[in-house]
Design a protein around this nucleic acid. Sequence first.
DNA 1: CGAAATGATTGACG
DNA 2: CGTCAATCATTTCG
Length: 433
Amino acid sequence: MDEQPRLMHSHAGVGMAGHPGLSQHMEGTGGTDGDGRKQDIGDILQQIMTITDQSLDEAQARKHALNCHRMKPALFNVLCEIKEKTVLSIRGAQEEEPPDAQLMRLDNMLLAEGVSGPEKGGGSAAAAAAAAASGGGAGSDNSAEHSDYRAKLSQIRQIYHTELEKYEQACNEFTTHVMNLLREQSRTRPISPKEIERMVGIIHRKFSSIQMQLKQSTCEAVMILRSRFLDARRKRRNFNKQATEILNEYFYSHLSNPYPSEEAKEELAKKCSITVSQVQYSVSNWFGNKRIRYKKNIGKFQEEANMYAAKTAVNATNVSSHGSQANSPSTPNSAGSAGSFNMSNSGDLFMSVQSLNGDSYQGAQVGANVQSQVDTLRHVISQTGGYSEGLTASQMYSPQGINANGGWQDATTPSSVTSPTEGPGSVHSDTSN
DNA sequence: CGAAATGATTGACG
DNA sequence: CGTCAATCATTTCG
């Protein structure tokens, strides 16, 4: 921009590199002392003040004349060449900075959060995840939570996109403006395409730094949103009665090996129509907690265990009264193991159970299932037979699988857990002490 | 309101 | 990676 006067007032000194007009005056007249300088400035101001339309016209005329000079194209080319060289040497060093890591991170995050991803149809990652979650759970408040979250997220998303678009537009506008300007000027001064390119690059960089700010604040917003909503999964939400029922049923009917496989967990989660987000963890959490707490204080759970045992027993009898299969396929209600047994001294008992029953576990491996079937039948029979607590309650369900350390180390491979044949449900009847 | 219950989280471990 | 054990944090209960 400030170079314009150079050619406009080309008479002032074409060869001067810096500021032709000024420098010439300085060097020429009075570069030695302050007074001289002031004088110069005064002169210049004077000149400026006296610029009139006529003088401008005159300048234009001169310019035109210069442009029409026969040597002009050649000179211009030379200038261009020189400039090209210098420009190239200048930018050779500073070009190609690595793609900003920060920006990459932000981009990745925005993409992951579904803010900058594919636009429509709720096709964003977050939305998809939400859909998956709510689809599996079908929980009422779950979807409500999620829709709230999604609404907020899409709000952010929208703002982000509008802003981004705005920036983009402004950037383009400005770029074209500058390019036009430069093209315009390139007729009067040497401007190589490379230079224009560089200018555009600079502009883009500036704008992308602005965009980065936008991305940064968007990221922040998303993080805040997450911490408020998704991390609300940290917020505890009790399972409803039915879900607890189902889980307990499974737990007590698999008391000897209460480690549901992934599929089983999934199944359970589906059945429970779990309401929290993070379905896959909830069931695991539940079983983890249950195992620990059961083991910790078996006595406390006896009543519950009894209850579910009765329940599953009844269930089983309904399915098969003649015992051809006491464990219905696909429903994990095989024979229960619960007991009105007071297990306060459980530790010792377990040992005896182990030694009595398994004597080794490779035997149990095969035997457990058979054994369980038998026990199941016996259990069912005894239950159906009228529930005499003398028989059932006293010697039935000890927490069979639990060993002295309190671990559930039992022989059956977990792979069979889902299948109805699981549940070495009760190895109990041997434990008559 | 305090205690109990209970879902979730964390760190160690194999 | 799943489990255990301890612990946190929230909800429910008396």
